[in-house]
């Protein structure tokens, strides 16, 4: 059985400035892949390129479909939900309207309403604030809203860009335990970008280490964890 996401020789640039130099990576069906690396290594750029948000070349095959030349909205429609850097909240809309925006590609009001309840079940705090303007939420709540909105798409694959960024440790562990449940119970594949390597490696089964736009090392999480020199040099723990 082929992988859920298969990326080969992905290159991307901002204007003339090349950021990615032909990277290969995979996400297994129902698997979690961590993409690790320092600031400026090209992690966010990789996610943006996968979603067609920036100019890129190379092959991207998702669920047997070549999406390398698809528009961002069509990629979302195929079942890839991107939780972007900065959370991408619709700040003027209410919390519930934000969730409904996440389900915009789907049909059937009843199943969408069910999924809103499901989102509130995962994130009870959002239920308390369902009618509130989303811009008034705290950073942690907005991150939860971003994840909940992505789940509304009923995705096959989630791209998570630094979900722990700027959050208090207790919120981070809450969020990651929910992500783990979503992955285990609903089989949603995940590609997770994190600077907090320890955290990401707890969730992931496969990891890719990226440095200045190139994949340096890849392998199963156990291999990467057990390699003392990698840990010391790149993961910093």
């Amino acid at each position: 059985m082929t992988a859920l996401l298969n990326v080969t020789k992905l290159s991307a640039s901002y204007g003339d400035f090349r950021v990615l130099h032909g990277i290969d990576l995979t996400v297994e069906r129902g698997g979690v892949t961590a993409l690790l690396g320092a600031n400026g290594a090209g992690k966010t750029t990789t996610l943006r390129a996968l979603c067609g948000m920036i100019k890129h070349s190379g092959d991207v095959v998702f669920d047997g479909v070549d999406i390398a030349r698809c528009a961002t909205e069509d990629i979302a429609r195929l079942g890839i939900a991107h939780v972007p850097e900065g959370r991408g909240t619709f700040i003027a809309l209410t919390v519930e309207e934000n969730l409904r925006c996440g389900a915009m590609t789907r049909k059937g009001r009843a199943s969408i309403d069910d999924d809103i309840e499901r989102a509130y079940h995962w994130f009870p705090r959002l239920k308390e604030r369902c009618g509130q303007q989303a811009g008034t939420l705290s950073g942690g709540e907005q991150q939860m809203l971003a994840v909940a909105r992505a789940l509304m798409l009923r995705p096959k694959l989630m791209l998570l860009d630094e979900p722990s960024f700027g959050l208090a440790p207790i919120i981070v562990s809450e969020l990651f335990s929910i992500l783990r449940k979503v992955n285990e119970q609903e089989g949603v594949g995940m590609l997770i970008v994190e600077q907090n390597a320890a955290l990401a490696l707890e969730l992931a089964r496969q990891a890719f280490l990226i440095e200045t736009g190139r994949i340096l090392i890849s392998g199963s999480v156990t291999e990467i964890r057990d390699n003392e020199s990698i840990r010391a040099a790149y993961l910093g723990y």
């Binding site: 961002t72 991107h82 972007p84 991408g88 003027a92 309207e97 798409l153």
Partner: peptide
Amino acid sequence: TRVGLAMRAAAENPTSARLAGIRV
């Protein structure tokens, strides 16, 4: 209406709207 909501979302945050599959 859903289209009304999609229009508001697309006007407010086109990038996020595209990621949600809305045809901005």
